[in-house]
């Protein structure tokens, strides 16, 4: 850093009355994840205790869920297990499931098996949600059914459209950015095809076009990167915000060259 030496010297030599802390690098705070337990119960075989954690209340949309397993008798944590998540909505006349992502490894990380569920509606008079956690550990195969409460998210984090190309209904869930900032942000959405009330496979064949807009002023932002499919229905791209405020992220979903549908998400910060 030889070339800065003299500049630095001058900067020091001068009485910079006013320049307190101007050059200090801003340090990003370490994310401290604060999980809260949102549900728990025993498996049908009553030998494993299942606890469900999340960072916040469950809401309509994509919710990362973290499962902790304990041996009911010893209270010891189970670190090795295969887990499947099955959300189920119980309504007056019918019941339906919702898209879910099972933990990808059998090994707990910090004692937790992480997956996700895309809740498609809030709990309430219409019906209530349960989460079925299927566990296969130490040769034991069983499941726990725990009730969960889902609230409507303040800004919609789940959109759907009926494809103009294949007539099927698709769900689009918003994942990122969770902490939007002015600048370049990672954008992540997940797309699922509704095959039936019980079958929601992750989609990977649609292509997505991103177009952010600030509706109050009618302008967009430059140099965005269209989300591209990575795995299990997740599409990752970049969204640029040039100022704070309310933005609409318009997504055009294409099936081949044809437009299948359009959705938008609100981002307000």
């Amino acid at each position: 850093m030889k070339k800065y030496n003299w500049l630095t010297l001058w900067a020091l030599a001068m009485i910079t009355f006013f320049s307190t802390g101007c050059d200090s690098e801003d340090v990003a705070p370490m994310p401290t994840i604060n999980y809260q337990k949102i549900a728990g119960g025993l498996t049908e075989t009553a030998d494993i205790k299942v606890e469900v954690y999340s960072t916040d209340k469950l809401f309509t949309g994509y919710n990362p869920l973290h499962i902790a397993l304990f041996d009911a008798a010893s209270g010891k944590q189970i670190e090795q297990a295969s887990i499947k998540l099955q959300p189920m909505m119980h309504m007056m006349d019918k019941q339906h499931a919702a898209p879910a992502e099972n933990p990808t490894t059998d090994r707990a990380v910090d004692g937790l098996f992480s997956g996700a569920v895309v809740f498609t509606m809030p709990s309430g008079d219409m019906g209530s949600w349960t989460l079925v956690v299927e566990v296969e550990a130490d040769g034991r195969k069983t499941k726990a059914t725990v009730p969960v409460t889902v609230v409507e998210s303040a800004t919609s984090r789940l959109k759907s459209f009926v494809s103009k190309t294949d007539g099927a209904k698709y769900l689009v869930a918003y994942l990122q950015p969770q902490q939007p900032k002015v600048g370049v942000n990672d954008l992540e959405v997940a797309v699922y095809r509704v095959n039936s009330m019980m079958d929601f496979p992750a989609d990977s064949k649609l292509t997505l076009e991103l177009n952010p807009e600030m509706p109050a002023m009618g302008h967009g932002s430059p140099n965005n990167v269209n989300p591209v499919h990575q795995s299990v229905g997740h599409y990752i791209g970049k969204v640029n915000f040039t100022m704070t405020g309310l933005w609409h992220l318009h997504l055009t979903l294409k099936d081949g060259a044809e437009e299948a549908g359009k959705v938008y998400f609100e981002v307000n910060f």
Partner: peptide
């Protein structure tokens, strides 16, 4: 020799919306 520090921002307001800042 001199050292200058500059900053300028813009905040836009519209009824019923969060301020837009850049």
């Amino acid at each position: 020799a001199s050292a200058s520090y500059l900053e300028a921002s813009m905040t836009m307001y519209q009824e019923g919306q969060a301020p837009m800042f850049m």
